[in-house]
Design a protein around this nucleic acid. Sequence first.
DNA 1: ATATTGACGGGCA
DNA 2: GTGCCCGCCAATA
Length: 111
Amino acid sequence: MTQMQQATGDANFREKVFRQVKKIPKGKVSTYGQVALLLGKPRGAREVGWMLHSNDRVDVPCHRVVDRTGRLAPNFAFDGMAEQRRRLVNEGVKFIDKIHVDLEKHLWKSR
DNA sequence: ATATTGACGGGCA
DNA sequence: GTGCCCGCCAATA
């Protein structure tokens, strides 16, 4: 690893985030904090959010990642939270209202 | 180098 | 359950 890559910080961490998000099963959701914790950064929730925002790759199901209250992203990359909600509903995720998913039922329990 | 911002989380009212 | 404050971390308006 070059010195530049280290300076960039966690270029490696970014890959971990994508890999972890890809593991979220269809019909389940995870939280930024949960993902961060699994990657060994208990306080890296904001970091995860930044990564997903800056990288809206189609192969990363970022719509399955919500915040701790189950609230959807304030500004989803494509069509606002309407698009995010549509995708989740399409996968069978239940909502307690328009912007909050039912975490009790759909929060992914990683192992 | 400092200040501000943001797709966050925990604790408390 | 919701809202506010504060701490945390990286990017940058």
